[in-house]
Design a protein around this nucleic acid. Structure first.
Length: 425
RNA sequence: GGAGAGGUGGCUGAGAGGUCGAAAGCACCGCACUCGAAAUGCGGCGUGCCGGCAACGGUACCGUGGGUUCGAAUCCCACCCUCUCCGCCA
């Protein structure tokens, strides 16, 4: 959510930032709407002030037993009051309209984000690891996975497309990956483990920015709850409506949760395999920071996610997203992309964003700066550390053998109960 | 699901139609006392919005939304949440 006061002060600057995102100018229209609201709001406040003044006088007159004066004033206020409901209604309508417009505008890109229309303008910043040279043609996990316990058929029969059942060693490997990640993030990386709600209300999803614009990407229950599309929603909303002390910051949260996405806009994309599912698990990282801490937290989060890939020996690259490829709430985003030998490309496995105070405004999350009066909005950051399903795919493909088996990376051995290889049945 | 109790400032907690943005205590900040500290005393201390360079003024906010009234933290209605007991249940 944007601060109307900043737009009021510099509508041209606001439009320039929107243009970087490929959006049409809105500044002038917003400023005009804001001016109309303020005019009505001021008129309403003046009316209320007069009413309050007179009511107070009535109280004093009655205390003195001066009923005549009291009755005169009562008539006066009654007349004045006839006008107030209209003003109130108008003020509310205008305020809501302005809020609705503001709520639909994405965050503005940070200054150091490269301009661009789509992913082709993203900037590769870093590469780690050398893709393995195979002495056979590496296969797609969707082809050799089923023999190892990746059961798409059974899942399709009960749930339809974009679902899978993991069985036997495959399920164990998946669980091992998740536990390994969670242990890393709660250990040296300093994130507090959270087991959060998976069903949340409108306000929570509005707070992180998935609502109101992206309802069609989410699943909704008959009770009106939303299934979280990412634990970013649950973890970030921990601080909703809070006034934090500066000494409490930064807060770091992590959670291993299922994520649910309707994939409404992805028809036909990644229909084979385990890459894009309606339901998947992810270890999410969230940080709540002061504006001054945010950049360092972003770097720490990136390092925390990269550390997983490095420990698993999975080649990856880090990409700085351009203005046109960023999500709604993000001011600056790094994607980590893991090497998939069957496709011969790097595929997104983590997205790590700083949202400055955009989400904090939406959920009213503030802190009291030390040695300063008043309050400020916190900065929020989120990132995957990592997506478990896609990590499973990366492990399968990068560690596959000519005979259709998969060697489990050593870092996972403490979690696999002695299992070191997945062997076709 | 049934019965009951309750949601007030950072915390505890009073207030039960008017001068209540709200007592008191704790916490916090400033000043005094002190070599320093503790203790003590004095003062300050909510948030949003609008106006103002500012001092400050106005307005809204006592779970949320409506209603009654000249006037609502206080009365009425609905909803949300918390707690206790009973039932059911992983």
């Amino acid at each position: 959510m944007h601060d109307i006061k900043l737009i009021r002060d510099n509508p041209a600057g606001f439009d320039a930032a929107l243009a970087r995102r490929g959006l049409a100018p809105l500044g002038a229209a917003l400023v005009e709407e804001d001016a109309r609201w303020r005019a009505v709001s001021t008129a309403l406040q003046e009316g209320l002030a007069r009413r309050n003044e007179a009511s107070k006088a009535i109280g004093q007159a009655m205390a003195k037993g001066d009923t005549a004066t009291a009755e005169t004033l009562k008539a006066e206020v009654a007349a004045l009051k006839a006008r107030l409901p209209e003003l109130e209604a108008e003020e509310r309508t205008l305020a809501e309209a302005l809020q609705t417009r503001l709520a639909a505008i994405p965050n503005l890109p940070a200054a150091d984000v490269p301009d661009g229309a789509d992913e082709t303008a993203n900037v590769e910043e870093h590469r780690w690891g050398t893709p393995r040279t195979f002495d056979f043609t590496p296969q797609d996990h969707a082809d050799f996975g089923p023999a190892l316990g990746l059961d798409f058929e059974a899942a399709a029969a009960m749930s339809g497309a974009r679902f899978a059942a993991l069985r036997g060693g495959m399920a164990r490997l998946h669980r091992a990956i998740a536990q390994f990640m969670l242990d890393r993030q709660t250990g040296a990386n300093g994130y507090e483990e959270v087991n959060p709600p998976l069903l949340v209300r409108d306000d929570a999803v509005f707070g992180t920015g998935q609502l109101p614009k992206f309802a069609e990407d989410l699943f909704r229950t008959t009770t009106g709850h939303w299934l979280i599309p990412t634990a970013e929603v649950s973890l970030t909303n921990i601080v909703r409506d809070k006034f934090l002390g500066e000494a409490d910051l930064p807060l770091r949260f992590t959670a291993l949760t299922p994520c649910f996405r309707s994939e409404a806009g992805a028809a036909g994309r990644d229909t084979r395999g385990f890459i894009r599912q309606h339901q998947f698990e992810k270890v999410e990282l969230v940080a709540i920071a002061t504006p001054e801490q945010a950049a360092a937290e972003h770097a720490h989060m990136v390092a925390s996610a990269q550390g997983i890939l490095e420990a698993l020996g999975l080649p990856y690259r880090r990409v700085l997203l351009c203005t046109g490829d960023m999500g709604f709430s993000a001011a600056k985003t790094f994607d980590l992309e893991v090497w998939l030998p069957s496709q011969g490309v790097y595929r997104e496995i983590s997205s790590i964003s700083t949202c400055d105070d955009f989400q904090a405004r939406r959920m009213n999350a503030r802190y009291r700066p030390e040695g300063e009066k008043g309050t400020r909005f916190v900065h929020t950051l989120n990132g995957s550390g990592l997506a478990v399903g896609r990590t499973l795919v990366a492990v399968l493909e990068n560690y596959q053998n000519a005979d259709g088996s998969v060697t489990i990376p050593e870092a996972l051995h403490p979690y696999t109960g002695g299992l070191t290889t997945l062997t076709p049945r």
